[in-house]
């Protein structure tokens, strides 16, 4: 493999991986805090993408900068995320993990079908928010779009790390999964922390939608299901419930996918999943996961 091909694949893999990582964070944060797999999480990419699809022309017509539609997507996703949590998930939280899982699956199907009714089944083209040229750097073609996408992903992840390390709400988001009773005793309103977690996870999905649409400017009602599934696998691979694990898992899945595609284009999904199965066979709790039984 030539250096330039390797380098190209590396940044493509990082680009893909950063998208998975941002989505995986949503799965892992929610799992960390309420031990629930939010299967509807992937569909928030679709919600974010449709929001941008409809708001970009609005912004352009109103003479406002188009990146404001990213803000709109973030707001819409957070609000829908919170509404889904409060209306559908909170009431079944005490009913056991199976009920929660089924509710999340139902929510995913509901959102996808609602989108089909509202926006149609025909794929739509999302206008690009930014369209940067490809430059030539030391003989390697550098698409600046991809570089910027990776950069956005890195900034979001670094921002999230700082947020959960330094802010009060962030610390509460870390303490609740570790010990719910002790968190209540020090004065944390656990329900509020759960709601905020859903809002942040959904907002990250909106950013992932921006990154995805920059590369593949197409939005369909079911675009979130495959992305969501892969991001979920990435979260498990890194160690579900562990925030740095989701980032690591996402980047790995992205890199594996792109490099496998290079050598065996038709096989890439099969081989990607096979590699993941092998990793999980060796380390069932995920790469950063600790082998601890569930606390009673």
């Amino acid at each position: 493999m030539t250096f330039s091909l390797f380098f190209q694949s590396l940044i493509n893999g990082l680009n893909q991986g950063a998208i998975y990582a941002l989505i995986a964070l949503g799965y892992t944060m929610v799992y960390g805090i309420i031990r629930m797999i939010n299967f509807a999480h992937g569909d928030f990419i679709m919600i974010g993408a449709y929001t941008m699809f409809y708001t970009i022309p609005l912004m352009a017509n109103a003479g406002m900068p188009v990146w404001l539609s990213v803000l709109a997507a973030i707001i819409v996703c957070s609000v829908v995320g919170v509404v889904v949590e409060v209306i559908a998930y909170k009431p079944v939280r005490q009913a056991g993990s199976m009920s929660a899982l089924i509710t999340a699956l139902a929510m995913s199907l509901f959102l996808e079908n609602l989108a089909m009714v509202l926006f149609g089944a025909k794929p739509q083209n999302v206008q690009k928010i930014f369209d940067l040229p490809t430059i030539n750097f030391l003989g390697v073609a550098l698409p600046l779009n991809v570089i910027l996408t990776i950069l956005i992903g890195v900034i979001m992840m670094a921002g999230l790390q700082i947020f959960i390390k330094k802010t009060k709400i962030g610390k509460a988001m870390r303490s609740v999964p570790q010990d719910r009773d002790a968190s209540i005793l020090v004065g944390i309103n656990v329900n509020r922390v759960i709601t905020i977690t859903f809002a942040i996870g959904s907002a990250l999905a909106a950013v992932a939608a921006l990154m995805y649409c920059t590369k593949y400017p197409r939005v369909t009602n079911d675009m979130g299901s495959m992305m969501g599934l892969k991001a979920f696998i990435a979260a498990v691979l890194g160690g579900i419930g562990i925030i740095p694990g989701a980032m690591l898992g996402g980047i790995l899945v992205g890199l594996i996918e792109i490099f496998v595609k290079l050598f065996a284009p038709g096989w890439y999904e099969a081989i990607t999943y096979a590699i993941l199965i092998v990793i999980l066979l060796v380390k069932p709790s995920g790469i950063l996961g600790k082998n601890v039984g569930e606390k009673v």
Partner: peptide, 21 residues
């Protein structure tokens, strides 16, 4: 005890002051 095992000693103490910093 119910301390927060994945936080440092100092972070645990900070959590104690969560409601009144």
């Amino acid at each position: 005890r119910h301390i927060f095992p994945q936080m440092t000693v100092e972070e645990n103490l900070e959590m104690g002051a969560f409601a009144d910093q």
